[in-house]
Design a binder for these strands. Sequence first.
RNA 1: GGACUCGUAGCUCAGUUGGUUAGAGCGUCUCGUUUACACCGAGAAGGUCAGAGGUUCGACUCCUCUCGAGUCCACCA
Length: 715
Amino acid sequence: MKTIKNNFKNEKEIYDFWEKKKYFSADPTSSKKSFSLLIPPPNLTGELHLGHVMQHSILDAIARFKRFQGFDVLLLPGVDHAGIQFEATFEKKLQKDDLSKQKLGREKWLEKAWEFKEEIYKSVWRSWRMMGLSADWKREVFTLDDGPRQAVFEEFKTFYDKGLIYKGPYIVQWCPKDRTAIENAEVEYEERKEKLYFVKYLVEGTKNEYIEIATTRPETIFADTAIAIYPGHPKYKKYVGKKALTPISILSLSGPRSIPIIEDSRVEKELGTGALKITPGHDLLDYAIGKDHDLEVLQVIGKDGKTTMLAAPLFDLKVDEARQQVLLELRKNGSLVKEEDYKHSVAVCERCRSVVEPLISEEWFVKVGNLAKEAIKTIKANEIRFLPKNYAKILSGWLENIHDWCISRSLWWGHRIPVWYRGDEIKVSLDSPGEDWVQDEQVLDTWFSSGLWPMSTLGWPSFAKASDGKPHDQKAGFDPELVKYYPWDFEISAPEIKFLWIARMIMLSVHFTDQIPFKTMFFHGMLRDLEGRKFSKSLGNGIEPMYLIEKWGVDATRMALYTYSVPGRDGRVSKAILDERGKNYRNFGTKLRNVTKFILELKPANSKQTKNLSHEEDALIEKELQDLIKAVTKHLDNLELHLAVEALYEFTWHKFADIYIEKSKARREEAQPILEHILKQLLIMLHPFMPFVTEEIYQKFDVKKESIMLEEWPA
RNA sequence: GGACUCGUAGCUCAGUUGGUUAGAGCGUCUCGUUUACACCGAGAAGGUCAGAGGUUCGACUCCUCUCGAGUCCACCA
């Protein structure tokens, strides 16, 4: 036991002290049992928000608790390059300097992007330290680092060699603003009030027999390649096999065109008129129907979200303008039968909220059917503990209906597709195979690398066993002993990325390592505003974590957030409500300091040295302390941090301070050893939640260790 | 259309496997400057635990239905 008392001036000094002493470092050579926690890498887009702070506070509390319990703890930090979002943020910044992708070119742009990355990284780094995150900094990983780069290559190459990766022109969800394909899971739906237009197509060979269809997108008429009716349509059945004319007058260079009338069971009786215009180039269902009927695929909306030459002379118009122009014409030529108000959901890009345009694009895909099956088996075998439990069902349900994964993105920020071309030759290689080889222009979906996060952070594939039983080459320089931390004991996430990220991690880990990626998967709730809306930059309803930290301190901010850490439950907060809780826990910190002042600074000269529980008050408080220890331990084991916090608060303030301490004043000398004992035990139990005050106070004890972090959890 | 979550004091939320007078914080009210603390202490008011029915010796807790709030998935011609 050392008796040097550190008199820390502020939280930063405490943090620096811990770091200097390497208390956060995991030790792969340790004989202790390991406990590993993986920090979900925040997106490289700017300051951490309140949700991050809550998530990371939860991780930190569990890490500190496990250290007290004698585990060799690894809390591994990292940041995600976040392709689309980073580019969007970066683009705004470039605009201010009157720069753009076009002006800079790929190389210059990447150079500046890496500089910007450093800028953001520093702010994330500062926030983490300020919050007291006890992460093992020397093992920090960025998803574009060499390690992950090797891992991503291994992943791509393996899939490619197994024939699970293919490339080709398919219909994809295209975001015209971000100018890239996105996948279904990145598409959201917004309810909008639009019009449903009823348009008649003349049946060829008749004078005035028409098929009426309903559409919300008249501007795509230019790309119609068939009319499909449901089988046995009473009115239109007789036209099957004939042709219809697109209702576009000579004004258009392309029309009117003659298109076949077909039958298809995917056309629904109840919707619209039971007849559907088929536009394989701009609708997923139409694409599928078109494929089965060998229909031509035309494209009237380009990747810039504007009309193509197919619509000439309505060329180069935005979708909305094109729609208005087409409607003018339809009215003029009498094809527009009627229009109705119509409420329906429109597909938008989850990142930029612009309307996505299904269109044909050359992209890379992964066949994930079998991977999903393996993952489902694992989930159904309950190998992973999900909190809340029902997420197991939600995830396996999604995996059961999984579609091929579009992994290419038309971006520059990310892992470039490791495929090289020379004439007709194709090679999969991380670096250029030689002169005259040109690399694929696209990069991989961010989740293609994030999905490997549990493995790439630990140096996979260097720890993977090859068929000869020896570890792979170790280019990335990772310590193979890190494999002991895999699978991870604990992972946490916001529920909104359960498919994009969590499901992928499970699929990829099971496939590549035959193991689950993590033993416990904790989904925290979302913090929302009082109307129940998500916090977002565009709504401007966010609450800055720094605001709370500056006003109430880190410990109080953490405590306030633990009260919202019930798995799967959203919390409604406002500045006022968080201020209230912040104030409450700031007061609690003050209470702790006052208790300490009374117990340690105003210690009577002739206090007893040893505990004696013969007095009934002493016996009672000791028993209550034991109950508290049991309760807090159980709550932490069950990952019910909010209950642990509540129990500690209640005991400290209302049992210990209000009752026991008051009574002890009458017999202070005798009670002194008990007062000290209880205070120390409380500090240890509170430390995972309030790391700074507890260390500050702990240092005031005469008999103590170098740091509270070296203490043991009360048994 | 399918799945799920929630509806507990004025507000934000807890409430472990069903068990005696349902809890916290803030807010409100009344006292109190006793030598750790007014960022405090003592005390009080405030809830038919959304509603109805059921299971049970006993339900906020389990089951069914209704109403209300919300999330996710699928689809929207």
